[in-house]
Design a protein around this nucleic acid. Structure first.
Length: 489
RNA sequence: GGCCCCGUCGUCUAGCGGUUUAGGAUAUCUGGUUUUCAUCCAGAAGAUCGCGGGUUCAAAUCCCGCCGGGGUCACCA
């Protein structure tokens, strides 16, 4: 059975690239009716961030992805948190020492730093000089009783280590490029390299899908699997996202790349997943819009692209808009309410209408607020000068606009019923008026639009007025007249 | 710098030696629908397939070199 895993480190915000890697792992396992596992790799105590584990887990869930075994739900090969498995790593590390595949090292950090700096100065590859490698096992064991130590991997000389990557094909690296990697740190915690290998084996992981930044550490893992006498899982290294500006690896320092931040800005999980899937992979039928279910069905790790894609927000925006439009009005309303709890204070009926009106104008949920401010706030964020300029179209005198707005406000005030069908009749009437006045139709409606919404750009005018109500609509038009008069006379 | 990986329109990609005047999506621009915006529809522009050599009757597709980009060289993952 196929078993894949994703192993987050609780060192901070979960990166959007990790969601993509996780998605591929998930899809690969599910496609073959296998299991997808979450494991927490918290072996770095210095970088450990309190509360990060539940936050990461919540984020993953928010994206609509689930796991079959993990730290919160357990499973047959737990615990799924590395800090709870220290004895296991120690046991296996010691086994390697006994076999002569690893050794105790007592070199101080200061000493190592010095050596490192020296080789750096000499423009050499900074590598551990294997000072402790030839210590006898008995002596090393004795010293280990009361001296701090690490356990290092014995890397063979000049040996080509080769593996077949599911995405990249054959990759070969000479062992001379490898350092005698630390396996157990002074604090007794394992390093990543020991912990992944041990856990992946113990948790029966069959396929490892991870970012391509791990390519060069895979040979260390090959060595470990060989020393333990274990079968190595298949590996697939997928390309990493590049930052659109720097063209370098998208990093936390270069802006909002945390997975959660996308949700916070109002990107829909389904749209994100769809977009993310397309970064490095494409469906054979060429249809770019698809559900998670469909992705799982069609995903093929072997057809993942090798080049690093640039994470371009443009296409994401298109996808998100598309997914928003695909929602029913009711669904969108529910999502909006959930996204911005402040909206719960608003009149539900009106809000529903506003949401329906804005649906095809939204790229993200987050835009809703600024787009619909005019519905809730009578004061527009615009200077009188700009307002007046918008109010009076070119080629038409301000006095004509004032009388046009006055007539309109009277017309609206006299409306017996304030509903869409009455308003549509008034709209038709105003349209006819354009002919009488000899005005362009747009010049009839634009001043009204500006007076009512505070902007030359708005959702459909009469639908907006219906939502706004008679009192506010008429009031706003009269206010527009007032400001016009003030600035003209 | 050493090592490893990669290189098709601005961007994401299809392409697996001839069916390719290199296809799609997005972004951009134009036109249509519309009282604005958006949606929708139609269309345009945009890639000498990084460059240079080979192999072949034939190369974006195979080989070599160069260049460019990325990754990695921790008691971080």
């Amino acid at each position: 059975m196929i078993r894949t895993r994703m192993a987050p480190s609780p060192t901070g915000e979960y990166h959007i690239g990790h969601i993509r890697t996780l998605l591929f792992n998930y899809a690969y396992a599910k496609k073959f009716e296998g299991k997808f596992i979450i494991r927490i790799e918290d072996t770095d105590r210095k970088r450990y961030v309190e509360g990060a584990v539940p936050r990461i887990l919540d984020t993953i869930k928010s994206f609509g992805l689930e796991w079959d075994e993990g730290p919160d739900i357990g499973g047959p090969y737990g615990p799924y948190t590395q800090s709870q498995r220290l004895e296991i790593y120690k046991k296996y590390a010691l086994e390697l020492v006994e076999k002569g595949c690893a050794y105790y090292c007592f070199c101080s950090r200061e000493h190592l730093d010095k050596v490192r700096k020296e080789s750096l100065a000499k423009r050499e590859i900074p590598k551990y000089n294997r000072y402790c490698r030839e210590l006898s096992l008995d002596e090393a064991k004795k010293r280990a009783e009361n001296e701090p130590f690490v356990i290092r991997l014995k890397v063979p000389d000049n040996e080509v280590l080769e593996y077949e990557d599911l995405v990249l094909g054959k990759i070969a690296i000479n062992s001379d490029n490898l350092d005698d990697q630390v396996l157990i740190k002074t604090d007794g915690f394992p390093t990543y390299h020991l912990a992944v290998v041990v856990d992946d084996h113990l948790m029966r992981i069959t396929d490892i899908i991870r970012g391509s930044e791990w390519i060069s550490s895979t040979p260390k893992h090959i060595l470990l699997y060989r020393y333990f006498g274990w079968q190595m899982p298949k590996t697939a290294h997928i390309p990493v996202f590049l930052d659109p500006l720097s063209k370098g690896k998208m990093s936390k320092r270069k802006g909002s790349v945390s997975a959660q931040s996308f949700l916070d800005r109002g990107y829909l999980p389904e749209a994100m997943l769809n977009f993310l899937a397309l970064l490095g992979w494409s469906p054979t039928d060429g249809k770019e819009l698809f559900s998670l279910e469909n992705f799982v069905k069609n995903f093929d790790i072997k057809s993942v692209n090798k080049a690093n894609p640039i994470f371009d927000i443009n296409k994401l925006n298109y996808f998100n808009g598309y997914y928003i439009r695909a929602l029913s009005d009711k669904e969108l309303l529910a999502k909006m309410l959930n996204f911005n709890p402040e909206l719960k204070k608003a009149d539900r009926e009106k809000l529903a209408k506003i949401v329906a009106l804005e649906k095809e104008r939204l790229k993200t949920l987050g835009e809703f607020e600024s787009l619909t401010k005019f519905f809730f706030n009578d004061r527009f964020n615009i200077s009188d000068r700009d307002f007046v300029e918008l109010l009076v179209p070119k080629g038409i005198g301000p006095k004509d606009i004032i009388s046009h707005l006055r007539n309109t406000s009277n017309l609206l005030e006299n409306a017996e019923l304030w509903n869409l069908s009455t308003l549509k009749k008034l709209e038709a009437k105003l349209k006819d008026k354009a002919g009488e006045l000899g005005w362009e139709v747009i010049n009839v409606f634009s001043p009204i639009r500006v007076a009512v919404t505070g902007s030359a750009i708005s959702p459909p005018l009469f639908e907006s007025m219906e939502i706004l109500g008679k009192e506010k609509t008429v009031g706003r038009i009269r206010n527009g007249i007032k400001i016009l008069e003030k600035h003209i006379f």
